[in-house]
Amino acid sequence: MVDDPGSRRGPDPTEPWRRLYQATVGALAPGDLDALGFHRQWSADRQGSGEATSGNADESRDGQVFLRQLAGWTTESGRRTAELAALMARLVPRCGELARELPRQMLGNGLPTDPLDFTSRLYDATSGPLSAMIRDLLTDEAFLQLLRRLLENWATAESLGARLSEDVFRRLQLATSSDTTRVATLVVGLDEKVDRLEDTIDDLDHGQDARTRDDELARLREQVGRLEEKLDRLLAAADDENGRAEQVGNGAGNRKVAGR
């Protein structure tokens, strides 16, 4: 048995993500999607908590180091959970305030006369303390960090889903959203060119003397002429290409016939 130095290494923590990526969208063109996004976040969080080990690559491959990292991540998760629990605990006095305020406001002017009156009073009694409670939550740094991580994970999952559906549609030879976007971009580009042309014509119509106008017109005619020449060359090239493709097609057909 060959003693492979790699076999003594500890498990690579990025391996499951790499495999998942390769098994799903690995064949696609590189883009914004980060195959190791989840892992990187996890790892960045770990470093942020001060649990990071040195950047020695060999050391990180060591099994014991991985176990230490795992312990660190577990501790970090525990710390976050405790932070959230503390945040919830801070909301308790607000709940008490709400409980005190509720009967006072609900029954202050006698009993509610109908369900709508009841609902309106309930809203008036609870909206203030509830707003304060939600504001406490939305301004808490621990909650905002949690929200950021949720958003990042959600966005990564969305990207992955979009890439997968693009790939499926492409394999089925159906138009994908990026195809539509490409066409739309061309249309927008054309629209902008037309607008610039219209702007130039507007300039000609407004506030320029006859000589400048004639010069501009001559220049514009020259530009349009050049544009037409380019289009002609483009069309000719496209015709040639079609002709060649047909010849190749016919040739292949002939060969098939000859082979029978």
Binding site: E141, L147, R148, L151, A155
Partner: peptide, 16 residues
């Protein structure tokens, strides 16, 4: 507070 650098990176949304 929400848009502050440690809490929000707009590129996450734009890229996705």
């Amino acid at each position: 507070q929400w848009f502050a650098e440690p809490n929000h990176d707009p590129r996450v949304i734009v890229n996705a």
